[in-house]
Simulated assay, not measured.
Amino acid sequence: MAQHQFQPDLPPPANTVGAVGWLRKNLFNGPVNSAVTVVLGYLAISFVWYVFDWAILKADWVGTTRDACSREGACWVFISVRWEQFMYGFYPQAELWRPRLFYATLAIFVALLAYERTPKRLWIWLFFVNIYPFIAAALLYGGVFGLEVVDTHKWGGLLVTLIIALVGIIVSLPIGIALALGRRSEMPIIRSICTVYIEVWRGVPLITVLFMASVMLPLFFSEGVETDKLIRALIGVIMFSAAYMAEVIRGGLQAIPKGQYEAADALGLTYWKKMGLIVLPQALKITIPSIVNTFIGLFKDTSLVLIIGMFDVLGIGQAANTDPEWLGFATESYVFVALVFWVFCFGMSRYSIWLENKLHTGHKR
């Protein structure tokens, strides 16, 4: 008796796999869904084409005056004429090499720290956090090594946005960690102080904090002591952001299983070793998305410094819109500013996703 031989499996139908299968399953799996897909697709394509036509095909790119904008599309000549103000504010023309050098060195440090295989990356990070800010401040402000003093009221544009965002992000993280640990402390006084601080600052709008930092903070210093407006804004942003960061970190601490704390205690570790070696590394890894989300919010909130007389990249755009020679090009200004914010925020978002996947060890669901 001949044995039965199984025939090899046939490949699935072509219309059920690949791009065609995905479209049939998700977009065209019924009359109603097919009609909605067609209508929404038409609207989306029409909108994208209109934007592309306005921003690229019919746009004016070359020129130095308003007369160069003679077509129906966007006038990017307006942005090119105001480029230095968007980047550096009102920094003196002869000293522009200093903020340019700051941008270049900052980009180099970010690239070195983002690349996983950079040798001595820990030492580079320590230098970037502890020493580089003072070098950058001396470079931009001057007054040392023969550099001309450039007061901070002349700074502006992307320069101010990056300085406030970087200082706020770097300084608020360790303060937030300390506040989160203090709020979970077993010492009532420490816990109460941290709780009051967090709840007070989280209950006050950032715009109010900036007003207080600009107007009321000098009242707490001795007579004759003047505080730079940028320093006051930085203090307000740091104190405000640290409160939100503390709650993010506290959420990560509460997510760590109780057994991790008990295992560390069973090993005889001190409180600081338990937190530094066992608990905090796990908590920070879990809260990476929330931490980066707070960073992104802080980066966008830097535009609020306009209310205290500082011109960030958005403030420069609004000031440029009031120029009588360039009235009518506010759309190009706001689109450019939005693109700048999107590039930085999207970059932070993608890096956080990469870092989260790299550190994934089983907590991700």
Rank of each mutant, 00 (worst) to 15 (best):
Q3F: 08
N15W: 05
L27Y: 11
N33S: 14
A35Y: 11
V36I: 15
L43R: 10
F47Y: 10
Y50N: 14
F52Y: 14
I56S: 07
K58P: 01
A59G: 08
G63Q: 07
T64Y: 01
T64W: 00
T65S: 10
E72C: 04
R82N: 14
Y88I: 11
L101C: 08
T105M: 00
F109I: 11
V110D: 04
A111Q: 01
L112E: 07
P119M: 00
W125L: 15
F128P: 00
I131W: 06
Y132I: 01
I135V: 12
A138C: 02
F145R: 01
D151P: 08
K154W: 01
W155T: 03
L159C: 10
I163T: 06
A165E: 04
I170D: 01
I175H: 05
L179K: 08
R183P: 01
R183N: 06
R184W: 02
S185E: 07
E186N: 13
I190V: 12
S192M: 13
I207W: 05
A213V: 07
V215H: 03
M216T: 09
S222Q: 11
D228G: 09
G236N: 01
F240L: 08
V248R: 07
V248E: 03
R250N: 08
G251V: 08
G252K: 04
K258S: 14
G259C: 09
Q260T: 06
D265Y: 01
A266P: 06
Y271G: 11
K273F: 00
K273T: 10
A283G: 11
S290F: 02
V292N: 04
N293V: 07
L298R: 05
S303G: 05
I308T: 09
V313Y: 05
I316C: 04
I316V: 13
T322N: 11
L327Q: 12
V340C: 15
V340A: 14
W342Y: 11
M348K: 04
S349I: 02
S349K: 13
W354Y: 12
H360Q: 14
H363N: 15
H363L: 10
K364F: 02
